[in-house]
Design a protein around this nucleic acid. Sequence first.
DNA 1: GAACTATCGCAACTCGAAGTTGCGTTTGCA
DNA 2: TGCAAACGCAACTTCGAGTTGCGATAGTTC
Lengths: 206, 206
Amino acid sequence: MERVTKRPAVTVGTRPGGRSERVVRSVLKAAAEELSLSGFTNFRVEEVALRAAVAKTTIYRRWPTKTDLVAAMLHAPLIADDATVDTGSLRGDLLETLRRGVAKGGTPEGRAAIRMVQAEIENPEVAELVRVLRRARRKAFREVVKRAVARGELAPTVDSNLLLDMIMGPVHGRMRLGEPVPASLMESVVDIVVAGFNAAAAPPRR
Amino acid sequence: MERVTKRPAVTVGTRPGGRSERVVRSVLKAAAEELSLSGFTNFRVEEVALRAAVAKTTIYRRWPTKTDLVAAMLHAPLIADDATVDTGSLRGDLLETLRRGVAKGGTPEGRAAIRMVQAEIENPEVAELVRVLRRARRKAFREVVKRAVARGELAPTVDSNLLLDMIMGPVHGRMRLGEPVPASLMESVVDIVVAGFNAAAAPPRR
DNA sequence: GAACTATCGCAACTCGAAGTTGCGTTTGCA
DNA sequence: TGCAAACGCAACTTCGAGTTGCGATAGTTC
């Protein structure tokens, strides 16, 4: 006479409305707060449960590990505003792209995200998240380059990924250390990179 | 009748020879192995003790925290080869600087170091370590720039720190994700940056 | 609006790794 | 040769991640 009552260990999401939605929202909000207060390393799931006024088990049933929770929390906002920038000029677009990146990485959440990614880069899910975000960003940026080429501001042969890395890379170090990134620095970087791409493309070096 | 036998909780290093030296060396070696095998997050002090055939307490008495141990292990090798590069040309010097940086960051220890720095950047000692290393690197690089200016390859007004960031930054992202950094990429970066600095310096933009 | 069950709350767990303590033993060094 | 610095060992504390079992609540379906 076996009682075969299915007891799902993990919340599956067949009941998305009402209470469940409230729980998810308040947990993610509390997670964001905890992340910006404590950073990833000192992020405590129990503290999130307290903030969200929710049982710790409820959290673990929906997000099996701390990393899952943080990743879920970061996913939406980070992937959201990949709306294409379009200011009308290459310089403007690059500056705007850079500004947005710095704005993202400059917030406590952004820095925490970078930290998490670093600390957990061996974690396949985190690595996959990084790949997804990067792919989205590179794809969006390809449009910027395409328009610049159409305007004659760039050679058609430019490597858009390299261009993106070259404007974002130099400021990443400062962002990672929590240092400010002044607007003048962003402008210098963009100007030098643009000049460099033009000069390197026009005369075939040497 | 108080017995005032001083029992120092932490090893102070008044006895640097013989056994102590052997202990320090084998622990640091074991720590390096463990770091490259497990990364910083999964780095277990007890495992280091086993590898080094040393008591766990011995480790803790000399390096009070896991971070201290890893930092000590990284300090020597990372700060070591800051011998000035001098190939005779700016392009060569930049390439060599970039190559060395990539070589450092490409090893398992290097990646682990980057990861540790990220994860523990709130830790004052780690932050200080980063500042020290960066200061040393920037100082060494200033010589490179000075010689290039003397040769007339750069304007005297260049910001050497910016130049360093602009060659190292773009490849850092790949290094952090454990991706390869092909030589062709390094050359592209250097060429574009050099061209950019020259072009941006000569005509005062606009 | 009644029943079915997904989801939640609660309390008490296990587990693993960091870091500690006390004491006896070895060994560098004066 | 002797004293204290440094080590070995074993048992301990602490803390946070993740688990388990069961009863209570509340979406959803008919």
